[in-house]
Design a protein around this nucleic acid. Sequence first.
DNA 1: TTGAAAGCGGTACCAT
DNA 2: ATGGTACCGCTTTCAA
Lengths: 346, 346
Amino acid sequence: MNLRELSELLNLSQTTVSRALNGYPEVSESTRKRVTEAAAQHNYHPNAGAQSLATGRSMAIGHVMPMSANHEMVNVIFADFIAGASEIYGRSGYRMVVSMVDDKDELQTYRDLAQRRSVDGVMVHGPVRADPRIPLLNSLGLPFVVHGRSTGVEAEYNWLDVNNRRAIEQVTEHLISLGHRRIGFVNGMEHMDFAFRRRDGYLSALKGAGIPVDPALMQSAEMTEPAGHNAACAMLGLSDPATAFVSSSIVVTLGIRRTLEEMNLRIGQDISLASFDDEISALPNGSPEAPIYTAARSSVRAAGRRCAELLLGQIANPTRANVHELWEADLILGSSTRAIARRRAG
Amino acid sequence: MNLRELSELLNLSQTTVSRALNGYPEVSESTRKRVTEAAAQHNYHPNAGAQSLATGRSMAIGHVMPMSANHEMVNVIFADFIAGASEIYGRSGYRMVVSMVDDKDELQTYRDLAQRRSVDGVMVHGPVRADPRIPLLNSLGLPFVVHGRSTGVEAEYNWLDVNNRRAIEQVTEHLISLGHRRIGFVNGMEHMDFAFRRRDGYLSALKGAGIPVDPALMQSAEMTEPAGHNAACAMLGLSDPATAFVSSSIVVTLGIRRTLEEMNLRIGQDISLASFDDEISALPNGSPEAPIYTAARSSVRAAGRRCAELLLGQIANPTRANVHELWEADLILGSSTRAIARRRAG
DNA sequence: TTGAAAGCGGTACCAT
DNA sequence: ATGGTACCGCTTTCAA
């Protein structure tokens, strides 16, 4: 059933039927009622391609997820983010087009999306430092929102970011206040902007307390369970081992936890453990009343929702000034941190 | 730059340019070369809506993820599955349209996708028993592939499933062979078809060994870390506690692990632990050489790839007979299982 | 080998 | 309040 057939059925012009369906005010209520009822009855839905061709809008948002050949780990965070975003899209009649592309094809993917007009805007995931996507998207004139920021990009753009630097600084300071001075930092890949900023936060906290930096206590790797395990093994095997850890993700924290378990070290007793917590739905940090890990918490799903709102707003009003939102993470005190155990003379 | 502009630039008709770009044989090689070069130079990409309108094909696949209001946990498995699928789509020029919809809107979502012609086929995720989506999609005439199966649906359809029943039967039998008779089973929600089949496998293994079924050793819940933790707490608190666990997912297993840790029980020594392992990229089961958990393993990402291939094949050849693929999971022996510790008189 | 022109199914401007 | 009609950009049949 297409518009022509529906209009013939109703003895109305396509124009009127279209107007009735799209809520134009000049249609009489009785006509509108007839039309909407007939449309529902015959399960009429306008052809997406035709609509997009006629209006110039595709009613779709592109989410491009870079997936490099070397580390093709799929970010568990991505799933929760798009769940949040799609809540918003659904309400506004937008669809979500997801592309997972190899790093090297990524810029071309954006050009393609823009030129084909298959999306009205894009969400930029996982910004790196000096991210080339941002100037490209600006030059393409395609509305976009960055989840995160990109150090070294001078252009203006919409972004929503967690204050990663401050979040990690805060949990590190917390560990320091408990007497820890050998604090292992298990970070994500530091070409990623968020990880770069977190590193800054860690270093800043050490500096503020006059604690020397030990490269052996800093790891930068993919945010996986084995990465956490490896880092913890290495940092606990040092002659002057870590007494506490700052971890970049609950997934990584699980790996650290496994190491502690293997070494018969009790969390929150022998070793303190603080984490960043994105509130991944399958891996909650205990219950709201009783968090397990001391953590800097910020919901990635809420970020997905908000980024989607910002993007739809930008699309609806292209001349709007760019929006920047910096969210502060919440410091959650769990049972995984406590004053340093005096296992050695200090 | 659209087709008309490009053709004017080249002093050719739109027809010829279109043919050159789409690989029609009648175009002379010299013309084709001129055309493709100009297209690349001007970054020409055909308008998606126009193409879809003209051809009737949208070159997009719909992935509809049900997300009920009550349990809005986002399956971490979903991320890996779509990563696999999108590899295949990318190669064939297909895009992936992801909708996360409330359970109650789901059937309408499929009708909408079909009527609007915004996708050429859909992937069905998370089939439940007697899943109403299958007869609906058959009646809509929209090509689809089910990741899993649906007990109680009589219609024919394309599916790819892991032999969930056999997989869980096998790991349970393995625990039984090690002397365990109090085996806790931490399952997913049993209205889901895969969980229902796994339950069967568990029960079948017990029956085969003449072990009585104890409902207190069976839990069915969302596949989250806390669910694993709760189940393990309950089953270890019984007067005749579990000595081993069969878990439905690595995520759940992590929760069980936490319980054991809290109770100072050593994995693979005091308590045995076997799992289903979907090979989620952020949560690998140790390394290939040294798996941590004894598990029934089957890559969800590979399933995503294969389901995508099946779906594109169905779209390319709509009269093809339905395909059914039943994958056997691999039994992986890790260090988490061993012969029962004789802690009690038995 | 190339081109003209009729759709594809809507939307929106201009009339009435 | 309703209708006629010219697009939107591409594909494809038919003609040359």
